[in-house]
């Protein structure tokens, strides 16, 4: 049969460009693949075993060879065998899978934090230095990256198959995932949770750069304002410093150095202050009243966008002293500029 050369070339190109196995581009990938191959082995052994039994018996005891069946009731020993062996294998898989799970979902403490906001149908990444990207994420190679993610509308799911990581991006709460890329290149970002019309268009790319290239990229693409600086501006314009001034007589608790500390709450509980806590305390303040303070803070639900909240959180994380808070306060008081009622801020 004659195949036209054009068609032939097309077929060769088509087949060589097709993928069969994802690249291993993060430190986690080899661990995930090891478990995958172990399970693949179990599957193949199980299938071969069942296949051999079924076909072996079917051939050996087919009616032509064995016209009369011998009745057998069963065998407790055999039942025990095929209860215990699969159980033992599954338990190994369970422990192995659990270890991997904890590895993927517990970021190392020195991880670099990047925020990701999902919305129908795009990914927005916010770097601490103020770089904003859409459907793109530039990261340095060899550095653990933690993504703090939130959705503005529906459930999304942030997946980078070549890193073997994925996490649901949920409206109303932060979720995190981390990875450390090992090879420079670009990798798919997929939204894997069905999120409406353009679900399959909610894709992007992670670009892994060498540390030098990454440095160049950060310098070239900064907007001039870090997230914390944006947050500081927002903090002042919302009038937060009116209460959170850090003065002894202030109506709100001192926020300098609050990030990472253990806080005693008015309801007697004790919490570790992290990103999720800070965000929640802005939106639902009455559930997070610090011990010794009155529940007078208004809610900012619906008044600050998720990006604005990220700015504020980053600002609070960077806040080590109250010097600048008080500076802003004096200026705003003298100008009477700080609005007492919060207004909608949509950066």
């Amino acid at each position: 049969m004659h195949i036209s050369p054009v068609l032939w070339q097309f077929l060769v190109k088509w087949l060589t460009n097709s993928a069969l196995f994802p690249r291993e581009a993060s430190t986690i990938a080899p661990y995930a693949d090891a478990l995958y191959f172990f399970l693949l082995l179990i599957t193949i052994v199980g299938l071969v075993l069942v296949g051999t039994l079924v076909f072996g018996f079917a051939i050996r005891y087919r009616k032509e060879r064995n016209p009369v069946a011998t009745q057998v009731e069963g065998s407790t020993l055999l039942e025990a065998t095929w209860t215990i062996i699969p159980l033992a294998l599954f338990l190994i898989v369970f422990v192995w899978g659990a270890l991997l799970y904890f590895r993927i979902y517990n970021p190392p403490t020195n991880a670099m934090n990047i925020y990701v906001v999902g919305k129908q149908w795009m990914w927005k990444s916010e770097h601490p230095g103020g770089q904003h990207e859409i459907n793109n994420l530039h990261v340095p190679m060899g550095v653990p990256i933690q993504l703090t993610m939130i959705s503005q509308d529906v459930f999304h799911s942030f997946s980078v198959p070549d890193f073997r990581v994925k996490r649901e991006v949920i409206p109303g709460r932060y979720s995190t995932v981390w990875f450390e890329a090992t090879t420079p290149g670009t990798y798919h970002i997929f939204c894997t949770q069905y999120c409406g019309t353009k679900h399959s268009g909610m894709i992007g790319e992670v670009t892994v750069l060498s540390p030098e290239d990454y440095k160049k990229w950060t310098e070239a693409s900064t907007s001039g304002m870090s997230l914390a600086q944006n947050g500081e501006r927002l903090f002042a314009s919302m009038g937060c410093n009116a209460c959170h001034s850090g003065n002894a007589a202030a109506r709100g608790p001192n926020l300098a150095g609050v990030y990472g500390s253990k806080l005693r709450l008015a309801n007697g509980g004790e919490v570790l202050v992290n990103e999720a806590y800070l965000r929640d305390a802005i939106l639902n303040p009455s559930q997070h009243v610090t011990a010794g303070y009155a529940p007078i803070m208004p809610t900012y639900q619906g008044q600050i966008s998720e990006e604005g909240l990220i700015d504020l959180v980053e600002y609070l994380k960077s806040l080590k002293t109250n010097y600048r808070v008080q500076q802003t306060l004096t200026t705003s008081e003298s100008n009477q500029a700080a609005p007492m009622t919060p207004e909608v801020v949509k950066p």
Partner: peptide
Amino acid sequence: ASLGLDIH
């Protein structure tokens, strides 16, 4: 069912 692989 195995937690870690389920993620991927």
